[in-house]
C-alpha cells in the first residue's frame, strides 16, 4: 500500500501546485476540487472516514462551488506585478516546509486521548468515538463552531452578496434536480442517524442536504423570494439557538454546562444533531446563494 500512498501524495501535491498556479480561474478551481477529493481519499487511508466525508462534501464540494461562483464574478486573473520575489520566497517556503515535516515526523504523541476516549465512550451515549468527541466530550468546541457559521451568515447578510440567478444549464438539469434532491434528503437522514454509531453526523448530513437544496435552487425549482430567504436565515440561526438552549437546559438539570442527563445522552445528542443538520443545510445554502442586494442608489 505504500506505493498507493506515495502516488496519492504526489497527486495531492500536483493538484495543489496546479490550483495555485494555473492562470485560468476555472481550471484552478477544478484542480482545487480534485485536490479536495484526493485529500478525502487520503483521509480514508488515514482511517478517518468521518473527516473524509466532511472534506468531500464541504471542503471539495461546497468550497469549490463557492470558488466557482467567485471566479465568475471576479473576472480573469490580472497579470502579476513582479516576480522578483518568487525565488527567495520559494526557498524560504520550502525551508519552512522541510522543517515542519521534520518536526512533525519526529514528534510522536503520547497516547493520552485514546485511552480516555475508550474509557468514557460507554458513558457518552453514542458508539462512534468522533461523534462522542464532537457532541459530548468537547461539545463546547462544536457549539462555538456553529457560532462561527452564524457569524459568517451575519457578515454575508450584512454585505448583501448578490443573489445567484439560476441560468439554464441544459435540459437535463430539471430531471437531475428532481432525482438529486430527494436522494439527498434520504442520504442526509441516513448520515444523521448512522452518525451515532458509524461515520457520519450533523455536518456531513447538513452538507449533503445543502447540496440537494442547491440543486433545486439552481434548477429554478425552489422559491427564492424575500420571505423564503428570511425563513432560511431564521433556520440558519436556529441551530445555535437550540444548542445554546440545550446547553443551559442541561446545566439546569445536571449542574454542568453541556452535561447531558445520565442515560438520556443519546436522545439529547440526536436531537441537537437533527437541529444542527437543518440549520447547517440552510446556512451553507444561504452562504452560496447569497442575499438579495437592495440597490440604495
Amino acid at each position: 500500500m505504500i506505493a498507493f500512498d506515495l502516488a496519492l501524495a504526489a497527486g495531492i501535491l500536483l493538484c495543489a501546485v496546479s490550483a495555485l498556479t494555473r492562470r485560468d480561474r476555472t481550471a484552478s478551481v477544478a484542480a482545487f476540487m480534485v485536490l479536495g477529493l484526493l485529500v478525502a481519499l487520503s483521509w480514508v487511508r488515514l482511517a478517518a472516514p468521518d473527516v473524509a466525508l466532511a472534506e468531500a462534501a464541504i471542503g471539495a464540494g461546497l468550497t469549490g462551488a463557492l470558488f466557482l461562483r467567485a471566479a465568475r464574478r471576479l473576472g480573469p486573473l490580472r497579470p502579476a506585478a513582479g516576480r522578483t520575489l518568487a525565488v527567495p520566497a520559494a526557498l524560504v517556503a520550502s525551508g519552512l516546509g522541510g522543517g515542519l515535516a521534520w518536526v512533525f515526523a519526529s514528534a510522536s504523541p503520547p497516547a493520552i486521548y485514546a485511552p480516555l476516549v475508550a474509557a468514557s465512550l460507554p458513558e457518552s451515549g453514542v458508539s462512534n468515538p468522533v461523534t462522542a468527541v464532537l457532541l459530548n466530550f468537547r461539545a463546547w468546541d462544536t457549539l462555538l463552531e456553529i457560532a462561527v457559521l452564524v457569524v459568517a451568515l451575519l457578515v454575508a447578510n450584512l454585505l448583501g452578496s448578490r443573489r445567484l440567478v439560476p441560468v439554464s444549464l441544459g435540459e437535463m438539469t430539471l430531471p437531475f434536480a428532481r432525482i438529486v434532491a430527494p436522494i439527498s434528503i434520504l442520504l442526509a437522514g441516513h448520515l444523521l442517524w448512522q452518525g451515532s454509531s458509524a461515520p457520519g453526523g450533523a455536518f456531513q448530513a447538513g452538507a449533503v442536504l445543502a447540496g440537494g437544496l442547491l440543486a433545486l435552487v439552481l434548477a429554478g425549482l425552489a422559491p427564492t423570494g424575500t420571505l423564503v430567504v428570511r425563513g432560511a436565515l431564521i433556520a440558519g440561526l436556529s441551530g445555535l439557538a437550540v444548542f445554546l438552549i440545550a446547553a443551559l437546559g442541561s446545566e439546569a438539570l445536571t449542574g454542568s454546562l453541556l452535561g447531558y442527563p445520565n442515560r438520556a445522552e443519546k436522545v439529547w445528542i440526536v436531537a441537537i444533531e437533527a437541529a444542527l443538520t437543518l440549520s447547517i443545510a440552510a446556512t451553507l445554502c444561504l452562504l452560496f446563494t447569497g442575499f438579495e442586494k437592495r440597490k440604495t442608489s
Binding site: V51, A54, L134
Partner: peptide, 23 residues
Amino acid sequence: PVPQAFVLTGIVVLVAVTAALLA
C-alpha cells in the same frame, strides 16, 4: 478521534470564513 474532531471542526470553520472572504 480527538484530532479527527479537530479537523472536522476546522473544515466547517474554514468554509464559513472562506464564504465571508469571497463575499
